[in-house]
Design a protein around this nucleic acid. Sequence first.
DNA 1: GTGAAAGCGCTAACAT
DNA 2: ATGTTAGCGCTTTCAC
Lengths: 341, 341
Amino acid sequence: MGIGARPADARRVTVRTVAAAAGVSTATVSRVMSGVATVKPELAQRVRQVADELGYRPSESARGLVRGATRHIGALMPDLANAYFHDVVKGVHHDAADAGFRMLIADHAGDPEDEHATAVDLMGHVDGLALLSPRLDRPALRDLARHHTPIVLVNRVEPGIDLPMIGVDSFTATLELCGHLAKLGHRRVAYVSGNEAAWQDRERWRAVQTSQFMGIEATRVESDGTIETSYAIAEQALTDSPTAMICFNDLAAIGVISRLRDLGVQVPSDVSVTGFDDIAIGRHIFPSLTTVTSPRDELGRRAWTLLHAALEGRTIEDSTLMLPAPLVVRHSTAAAPNNPG
Amino acid sequence: MGIGARPADARRVTVRTVAAAAGVSTATVSRVMSGVATVKPELAQRVRQVADELGYRPSESARGLVRGATRHIGALMPDLANAYFHDVVKGVHHDAADAGFRMLIADHAGDPEDEHATAVDLMGHVDGLALLSPRLDRPALRDLARHHTPIVLVNRVEPGIDLPMIGVDSFTATLELCGHLAKLGHRRVAYVSGNEAAWQDRERWRAVQTSQFMGIEATRVESDGTIETSYAIAEQALTDSPTAMICFNDLAAIGVISRLRDLGVQVPSDVSVTGFDDIAIGRHIFPSLTTVTSPRDELGRRAWTLLHAALEGRTIEDSTLMLPAPLVVRHSTAAAPNNPG
DNA sequence: GTGAAAGCGCTAACAT
DNA sequence: ATGTTAGCGCTTTCAC
């Protein structure tokens, strides 16, 4: 059904093809394509037209080879299904694009084993890498740091790893969240966890435990930061009759709230529920989510600043950044119900 | 604070470096790195060790240049913030990985102008491209089809374009959705649109209009398939007192429901609301969403089948696929309220 | 302002 | 089984 579909020309169109067709040298074609100014405008014009007619596209592989750089950065995403990461990546992307870098996003298809291999592979294709993977362990991180490709660790601060890194201060934010709950009279809470290998999870759980000084007693319930798993374990989290459930992130909170609704438990009058991240949907669900706002855009931008510096061989004074994350109280938290005992 | 951070060696480590260090030829190193069997195991072992010690990584640019192929496919995403697309891309990714292809995901940072340029650029880096962009116009598509890189159009069926393509049968599904609404007694409905340039939007709106034969009168309200815009225009959609709102997708439905809640309008008793796509969150919000299930995973897998065939120069009989999308009734739709007039 | 020519790092004949 | 060598397509001195 193709209309005038010419079979693709057998030979690839290269600089030489264009040069021959335009009656100039390959050097001139290269200069025109790269936008170097030292070509007479009318000649440049003609070359451009010939190139267009021939459908010429410079080979990125050849360019990358001769320049020793691809002008590409990579982003390794842990989970394409979590809106949180898009927002961070968008921040990186935006500023990187302004600096003339394209961004390659790689997802490791959910296979954690694959994460390290994917990172190494990706490094071969880019000039620098933003690592958003919270679960890579420290030896893997060390190995990655040995390579020559600049890397910045995003959304995670791991002392003792020789990499620029930037994260959100989950610990302080979670403590603030606990304070909010304590003030509302909550004493028994359940922590619906993220993946236990994730730095963010360790920080948040540590803060929840620390909140004992506020009178909060916490039980940890294993989940993984997804809606479905959190939905599945929400009932189990009810075991010790908590009056509040602190969820690792907003997705987990949504799963928990959904399950509580199915169970006939009222949120927030029976049980308060909190999230973390403040994804866009959080203010639109019912009840709207009390959560912590991660400055995702700034996270992304600052990550790019770090990466860009590394790309240019500049050394940055303080290459470990920790961003504050403010609490946002909405309607999924309320005063603890009176003890029915 | 770096522990034993060696400055990166001044010279790049290449095949030659490794060959010299291991006392073999570059060809042998190449064979070992590519896993070609014709090397004596013990020699291969030694080469591998030397390569490891030197931190050698073959240059992907050089490989790509000499092989004329990168073993990479690209996916151009319209919107990193829409969960729908991840699921499709995951389907592609999974099967492509099995076939030894890595996937590069590019997002055009929300700039529609940029979409075409991004596609062209991406084509330079990959052997084949999955185009998930619903908004590229036909001339742009034609231009893309002229290039030598195989492309498959995903989530969209555009007759007259000489490209393999695969989409979901929005028209039939939407008609079914209208039938469901008509049976519930709805007559006046508002269609909360997606981006008007999107194929899916045209199909769905066409079906809504067609449903006139069922007695449904529809008004179109412009939105763009995002939560925020749909939230913003939801009140305006109430103008003609519809008893149901058919939203372009689930995200739009979530925005609309949120606004109606703020307005004190009950869903579904006052107004029924429907979505489209059946994203994971839809069953967990309140009320749970009546929607249409797009077979995203199958969409992705079939897209890969098409692309893989094109990559190998095989011609596929029927390269225009249209997948059925079943209706799933949940709790955001109910009988139309009795006419209060 | 333009051309000639030397590689960038790798793989794939072709030799041995 | 391993080595030699000729490019892949491009950019970039260096001449002119």
